[in-house]
Design a binder for these strands. Structure first.
Length: 337
DNA sequence: TTCTAGGTAGCTTTATGCTA
DNA sequence: TAGCATAAAGCTACCTAGAA
């Protein structure tokens, strides 16, 4: 059995004041005499009292917490974005409830419901759903609409016309990445793509195709390897293409897990990057810098994106009626030689 | 007039009691 | 047994009274 938690009433009794006076001391609001304040503060310090946040939220009809919902926390890209969010939210004296949905719409729905129940002040969400499927988009839209807290979309498809958001143009990014490979002299460029039911995957794939076509190059179906944006599958694809002698001179890995899986296969098969195969990665692999891997990449700054989204949310909380805000994050192509 | 501090309504949910 | 009313939880915000 735990001890009974101290309440504001107990502090008031011990300090011989009314609980409203204790509340004023705690919140540094209203008039409190110097002597009274010191007496209350002494009792608080000696008793280790901390206000009960649930009761405070109940009284204020709001919490000081925001919710962050991401589709895959194992992705370093989202981990970096979270750092950026946390930076801004900390500065604004707010807290974060973090939800990982594992790319599962059901989990996403649960997370949103839970955050609504917790009366969070705002939500940043990197959605799971594919907006090209009308019924799914409709469901997602109605769910977001039922949430009274302001919402900011993070890294959702760029044409999603809902709420505030920080977006990335996946088509444009992939297009310029592949164009850069072509400019560096490559004519045979393969791609390890993902499940094309997903809009992000399709956009990146479309960028790849357009870059080839605009450069007068044929799209060779035998150079299109369909995976699922996971390390394991990309590794398997990499291994089998190397072992079958089907490795193209250049390959575009369309997300960071795919890059990791493919490079792992190359290392195991003694395939030298930039000598035997040139890789253009979608996103930088920060954690792999120490290995000095030679790969080209499209770099985005997820931390800045997180900061941007959190800033947008804080502003929206302060000014609920301001016009909708949408920002596209920039990217740059980094060639390793 | 300004400062100080007590009193209390009200926030939401749940348990309990009362009545039909 | 169902349905409704009320109290309780901890805290804030507002109102008000009294002192200086």
């Amino acid at each position: 059995m735990g001890e009974k938690l101290l309440t504001i009433e107990d502090i008031a009794q011990a300090a011989n004041v009314a609980k409203s006076t204790v509340s004023r001391v705690l919140n540094n609001s209203g008039y409190v005499g110097k002597e009274t304040r010191e007496r209350v503060e002494k009792v608080i310090a000696e008793s280790n009292y901390t206000p009960w946040v649930t009761a405070r939220n109940l009284s204020k009809q709001m919490s000081n917490t925001i919710g962050v919902v991401v589709s895959e926390i194992t992705n370093p890209y989202f981990a970096r974005a979270f750092e950026g969010i946390s930076e801004v939210i900390d500065k604004n004296d707010m807290n974060i409830i973090f939800c990982n949905t594992d790319r599962t719409p059901d989990k996403e729905e649960q997370a949103l419901r839970m955050l609504q129940e917790k009366r969070v002040r705002g939500i940043i969400i990197s959605p799971v759903i594919d907006y090209d499927v009308p019924e799914k988009a409709k469901l997602f839209r109605s769910q977001l609409e039922s949430i009274s807290a302001p919402t900011v979309l993070l890294d959702a498809p760029v044409d999603l016309d809902l709420w505030d958001g920080v977006f990335f143009d996946n088509f444009d990014g992939a297009y310029h990445a592949v164009k850069a490979m072509i400019s560096s002299g490559h004519r045979q460029i393969g791609i390890i793509t993902g499940d094309r039911k997903n809009k992000v995957v399709r956009e990146r794939h479309r960028g790849y195709i357009k870059a080839l076509k605009d450069s007068g190059l044929k799209v060779d179906p035998s150079l299109v390897f369909v995976g699922d944006y996971t390390v394991e599958t990309a590794y398997r694809i990499g291994k089998s293409m190397i072992q079958a002698g089907m490795l193209p001179p250049a390959i575009f890995t369309a997300n960071n897990f795919t890059t990791i899986g493919f490079i792992k296969a190359c290392i195991e098969e003694k395939v030298e990057l930039e000598k035997d195969v040139s890789v253009m990665a979608f996103d930088k692999l920060d954690e792999y810098d120490i290995f000095g891997l030679k790969y080209n990449r499209l770099e985005r700054d997820p931390r800045a994106m997180g900061r941007m989204a959190a800033g947008m949310l804080v502003t929206r909380i302060q000014y609920p009626d301001m016009p909708r805000s949408r920002k596209i994050i920039p990217s740059k192509i980094v060639m390793c030689r």
